[in-house]
């Protein structure tokens, strides 16, 4: 029974919930950016343009799937899948409601990092297999960037683990429900986490790997049709995962201070809605930042990662460890 439930959960989340959220996110991004820019944005297909993602999807599916003659075919076809799968898998441990997560692993947070570092392969291989100079530059930039920021991202989670003393995501959220949202004591850590997660998801101001005005489209320059759509989808699912993690690690996950959810399925549903709402707020932040800031230059981005964020997160780990030792114990 447990197995069956997991299978259902996985298939629903991976094929329905995440892609739909990603599609809605694309719509939201276009509407929000339009709002910021005094435009209307998509408003023709369906009420308020809500069905626009479906129209987009149909377009992607019916576009000719061009495989240029100069590519390394096996790698070229593999890359979009390699990019999408880690994005979906990383979501598995996200505690999306009280007591709910697809995989309630004891090493949950480690799984996220293990899997999300796989995502770089899709991008790098995509850039390399395309056998074109713009793609190659994009792929090289992506691999360097994602590996660099993975360090800062990983280190910025260590203080959370020090405070909570558990790798299990549910436990981290539960600790915050019992004590205080971790963003309060660990605000600078959260800033580092946020910046690094923007870099990890290749979003502006860190979208050097696909910098449209420099590298045309970076690693996915040579991709068309559904293969491009998969890269596209992967980026948005990464955003969702990053936002969900930010909520779970720093903003109390599904909990609300002073609110006790009723027992039973009603409480679970409510907690799920709280989680969704918080994640939505973070997704809005992603969009807001993207349409406000210009792009870093590649070397400035590396400087920021290695010379600022990495030392800063090391210092913060020390400070947190000291604090935990002084205040005595984790709980």
């Amino acid at each position: 029974m447990k197995l069956l439930w997991t299978v259902v959960e996985v298939s629903v989340v991976a094929t329905v919930v995440l892609p739909t959220t990603a599609a809605l996110l694309v719509w939201a991004e276009r509407r929000v950016s339009a709002f910021m820019q005094d435009r209307l944005g998509p408003n023709r297909v369906g009420p308020a343009g809500l069905l626009q993602p479906i129209a987009d999807l149909l377009k992607f599916m019916f576009k000719e799937d061009v495989v240029p003659g100069h590519v390394n075919k096996v790698m070229y076809v593999l890359a979009p899948a390699l990019s999408l799968v880690p994005a979906l898998v990383a979501f598995a441990v996200v505690p999306y409601a009280r007591g709910m997560a697809i995989a309630d692993l004891n090493v949950g947070i480690l799984l996220v990092f293990a899997v999300s570092s796989m995502a770089v392969y899709g991008v790098t291989i995509g850039g390399w297999a395309s056998n074109s100079k713009y793609s190659l530059l994009g792929g090289v930039r992506a691999s360097a960037q994602m590996i660099s920021y993975e360090l800062a991202l990983g280190l910025s989670v260590v203080p959370v683990l020090l405070v909570v003393g558990d790798l299990n995501m549910q436990a981290i959220v539960q600790w915050q429900a019992d004590h205080v949202w971790l963003v309060v004591p660990l605000f600078p850590v959260w800033v580092i986490f946020l910046v690094s997660s923007y870099a990890e998801t290749n979003r502006l101001p860190f979208d050097c790997p696909e910098a449209e005005t420099e590298l045309v489209a970076g690693y996915h320059t040579e991709y068309s049709s559904m293969k491009f759509a998969l890269f596209f989808l992967a980026e948005y699912i990464h955003m969702i995962t990053a936002s969900a993690l930010s909520v779970a690690l720093f903003f109390g996950g599904w909990s609300l201070p002073g609110v006790t959810f009723p027992d039973g399925s009603m409480g679970t549903l409510l907690s799920g809605l709280v989680f969704a709402g918080k994640t939505g707020a973070f997704l809005f932040l992603f969009i807001w930042v993207r349409w406000t800031l210009p792009r870093f230059r590649y070397d400035q981005l590396m400087d920021l990662g290695w010379k600022r964020l990495l030392p800063a997160s090391l210092v913060l780990i020390l400070a947190t460890a000291g604090g935990v030792a002084l205040l005595g114990g984790t709980n």
Binding site: S33, Q37, D38, A211, T213, W291, T292, L293, P294, R295
Partner: peptide, 16 residues
Amino acid sequence: FAMDLGAMTVFLWCFR
């Protein structure tokens, strides 16, 4: 110029 450096919104404001 702004769009080339990624600041898309300024571009559209200018266009307005």
